[in-house]
Simulated assay, not measured.
Amino acid sequence: MAVKRSNIVWVVLLAIAGILVAAWVDGGEEPLRTIKQPVDLPEGAL
């Protein structure tokens, strides 16, 4: 049973399109929040 090359190309294109749609729906920018945590600096670092 031979699979045509054009069928493979369509399957790959559909898979890429599906991944892009999923990333677009799930993705997006998340708001940045400040990190308020004290940091210990070694002596003489400044």
Rank of each mutant, 00 (worst) to 15 (best):
G44F: 06
Q37E: 08
V11H: 01
P38I: 02
D26T: 15
I8W: 05
L14S: 10
P38E: 10
K4L: 15
K36L: 05
V11A: 10
G44H: 06
A2V: 11
E43S: 09
D40Y: 12
I8H: 03
S6Q: 13
V12Y: 04
K36H: 06
P38G: 04
I35K: 09
E43W: 07
L46V: 14
W10G: 03
R33Y: 07
P42G: 00
R33T: 13
T34W: 08
L20D: 00
I19H: 03
G27E: 03
L13E: 01
E29G: 11
Q37G: 00
D26P: 01
G18K: 03
I16W: 04
V39R: 05
G27T: 03
P31G: 08
L41F: 14
G18H: 04
L14K: 01
W10R: 14
E29Q: 13
A15E: 01
W10N: 11
V9H: 00
V25C: 06
A17L: 14
Q37A: 05
A23T: 08
V11W: 01
E30Y: 08
E30T: 12
P31W: 02
G44R: 06
N7D: 15
P42F: 01
A45M: 04
P31I: 05
N7Y: 09
V39K: 05
A22S: 13
D40F: 12
W24S: 09
A22E: 07
K4W: 14
T34R: 10
L13P: 00
V25W: 09
V12T: 11
V39E: 06
